[in-house]
């Protein structure tokens, strides 16, 4: 069972009368890229907040990297990486400072931080800008760096909330190559996106509709079961069906 990095059973979150997440059950294996799709307001953000230990579920069970989401929220936070389009890096710190800062937060030894920062800056080809403020970099670079920082400290799982929104097509693909590489190294990737071509890159996909998981499977299985040609049609089929 150690292979299940995320495991949820009947996870439910209610706000008053409104059920934002309704009996969600799924699991994500080690090194798997798991796509979490759904319309705006379908409950994706609520689910991610619970899985990251930021919000208590109303009922149900879940473990992240073996830690219980009710009891071990602090340990969960140490073992996950998170990035979103809205919050990624500190604009008024330099590239290097950002990397070192995040290393520090996650209590890595300072020698290790230095070595790994150097390696990371080398891999991303950022030597020439390592002392520049993040705010001055193009969005695509920022997002790639933010992702690298998110996986910098973790060997377990990284949550990506619409990581590629507004990024140019070439950088978007480079970003996905980074995701593939991380997954190849055994990190589980939990990703939301509004680009339906990116849904195809995921190992498995869950589609949320009105707080429930309406469908789950590999892209091929999903397309097969709805007898359509693309993930876009699958999405349309499921989300339109709610109206």
């Amino acid at each position: 069972m150690n292979d299940l990095i995320i495991n949820t059973e009947n996870l439910t979150k209610k706000f008053g009368n409104f059920t934002a997440c309704d009996n969600i059950s799924f699991n994500v294996k080690k090194g798997e890229i798991f796509g979490f799709l759904g319309a705006n307001g379908a409950g994706k953000t609520t689910a991610i907040r619970m899985l990251c230990g930021l919000s208590q579920p109303t009922s149900g069970h879940a473990t992240i990297a073996g830690y219980d989401i009710y009891k071990d929220t602090e340990k969960i936070k140490l073992n996950i990486g998170y990035m979103s389009q809205k919050f990624s890096l500190y604009e008024d710190l330099t590239v290097k400072e950002n990397i070192e800062f995040y290393g520090g937060i996650y209590r890595l030894p300072s020698k290790e931080i230095r070595e790994r920062s150097k390696k990371l800056i080398g891999e991303l080809g950022l030597e020439s800008v390592q002392n520049k403020l993040i705010g001055s970099l193009p969005l695509g670079w920022k997002q790639k760096l933010a992702f690298s920082v998110a996986v910098f400290h973790t060997q377990k799982v990284v949550f990506l909330d619409e990581p590629t929104g507004g990024v140019d097509p070439v950088t978007r693909r480079q970003f996905w190559e980074l995701i593939y590489k991380a997954a190849d190294e055994g990190i589980s990737v939990f990703v939301t996106t509004h680009y339906m071509d990116e849904a195809e890159y995921c190992g498995r996909i869950s589609m949320m509709v009105d707080g429930r998981i309406a469908a789950m499977g590999t892209p091929k299985e999903l397309k097969g079961s709805f007898n359509v040609g693309s993930m876009y049609d699958v999405f349309l089929h499921l989300a339109r069906g709610t109206k």
């Binding site: 759904g38 319309a39 705006n40 379908a42 389009q85 619409e162 929104g165 507004g166 509004h194 339906m196 876009y232 999405f235 349309l236 989300a239 339109r240």
Partner: peptide, 11 residues
């Protein structure tokens, strides 16, 4: 950018 961050159906 009226459709940025909006899901495919709403778009």
């Amino acid at each position: 950018e009226p459709t940025t961050g909006v899901d495919p159906v709403s778009r």
